[in-house]
Simulated assay, not measured.
Amino acid sequence: MKSNRIITAAAVAAGLLFAATGCAKPLDDQGAATANGEGTEQVVESASEATCTNPAPSDKELGDMKIGFSQSENEQNPFRATETASVRQSVEEAGAEFVYTNANSDQAKQLSDIQSMINQGVDALIVAPISATGLQSAFEAAKSKGIPVITIDRETAGEPCTDFISFMGSDFERQGERAGEAMIEALGGEGSVAELQGAPGSDVATLRTTGFDVAVKDAGGIEIVAQQTGNWATSEAQEVLAQLLSSNPDIDAVYTHSDTMALGALTAISQAGLTPGKDVKVVSIDGTREAVGHVASGDIAAIVETNPRFGPAAVDLLAKWFAGDEVAQEIIMKDELYTEKNAQDALDSGRAY
């Protein structure tokens, strides 16, 4: 994991705690989140010491700007739907014009989408990249027009302060480690695990695999007997796990890189005549409402959260950028761990999406 992931005094002083409503909230004297009763806060866990600064601050008000958002995937995925709603709400609450595109997992379309928004005269871009590479030409086009870019939820190739001004997201390797720790607890330290991975080439999938591997290897009694992609899809994960359970009926648990795949895994387990949570343990990453409901009922052992509500943080950072203030090149959000003990609270508070 990256060594520059530390909370700086400047980050704390700037109040880098963002609520889903678009209101920034400060940290208290102990650095704890100030509660707002909604349970949906996105809290900064660390901010890099390295910063970027706008060389030509603007006198233009954010409310007079046009802000584009390039979404990467179909919004049937609850993470994507919540993410888009958060960005849209925050941009519109700031008084700015919201310009939206969705690449539907098509890299070429995301490139053309970004170019289209540049042609429409956006003042800033928020981009949820499809993959770890492939957006360099889009970044070059934005740079040539003096348009700042924030990347969210997935890291992509490029130089901070040159190709984009900041990345906001989770520590994906740490998410994998936490999933591994939850799996160790669920299995009592021993068992065979099938891993359903995200899309090949995704930095998220790679890091979630790495972190999980590190955690379970340290335990010693857990063996990963299969690693196959489910491409973040419910139906594909169901099909893959059905085949794995048929060829290896001794699988004790399943680790999925997303809740969409966890739901497919639950179906495959049930159709194999097994009981999720009893015969086969499931650990996932995301925090969608449907999946967290399965944690509350005991079907899923644990879920490592990925909070998709980036809107307030992204809009706040753009305001700082245009004002000429320093902005952190990397901002890592804090994620919860949902177990049977707190899953119902996450559902009741609205934090599970």
Rank of each mutant, 00 (worst) to 15 (best):
G176L: 00
Q238E: 11
G134F: 08
G298T: 03
Q42S: 14
P148D: 09
G230A: 08
Y353K: 05
G31M: 12
A20W: 01
I67A: 04
K341D: 15
V315Q: 04
S246R: 12
Q107F: 04
I222G: 10
I165A: 02
E75I: 09
C23M: 09
S349L: 09
L196P: 10
A103H: 06
V315D: 10
L266H: 03
A262V: 13
P249Q: 07
E330P: 07
D299Q: 11
Q271Y: 00
K217H: 04
T234A: 09
S192P: 04
D279K: 08
G169Q: 03
S166N: 01
L17G: 06
I130A: 12
S247C: 05
A10K: 05
E38Q: 15
I6H: 06
L187R: 09
T275L: 01
V214D: 12
I222F: 01
Q344Y: 03
V43K: 09
T256I: 09
L337V: 15
D171Q: 02
M261I: 13
F139S: 06
T256E: 08
A319N: 11
S137M: 08
M65K: 05
Q110P: 14
T267M: 10
S116N: 14
G180N: 04
E190H: 10
A24R: 13
I67S: 05
A132I: 08
T151W: 01
F172N: 15
A179E: 00
Q120H: 02
F69Y: 10
T306G: 04
K341W: 00
Y255P: 12
Q228F: 00
G273S: 06
M65Y: 00
P129A: 08
A141Q: 12
G146W: 06
N231T: 11
A19I: 00
S170W: 01
I7D: 00
T229G: 06
V304I: 15
T53N: 02
P308M: 05
A11P: 07
S48W: 14
S131Q: 15
G293V: 02
E305H: 06
G15E: 06
E195V: 15
R289M: 10
D286A: 14
R5H: 12
G95V: 13
V193W: 07
S105N: 08
S192T: 14
T306P: 00
A346D: 04
E97Y: 04
T82V: 11
K145N: 10
G15M: 03
Y100H: 14
K281I: 11
D348H: 13
G15N: 02
A24T: 14
L245S: 15
G188A: 08
A205I: 02
N36H: 11
G31V: 06
A313R: 07
I331H: 00
Q76V: 15
I7N: 00
G198W: 03
I332F: 01
E155H: 00
A81W: 03
R178K: 06
L135M: 09
M261V: 13
V149W: 07
A268G: 04
S72W: 02
I114F: 07
G63N: 10
L111D: 13
F172I: 15
A142W: 02
L337K: 05
P160M: 03
A328G: 00
A179Y: 01
A302H: 02
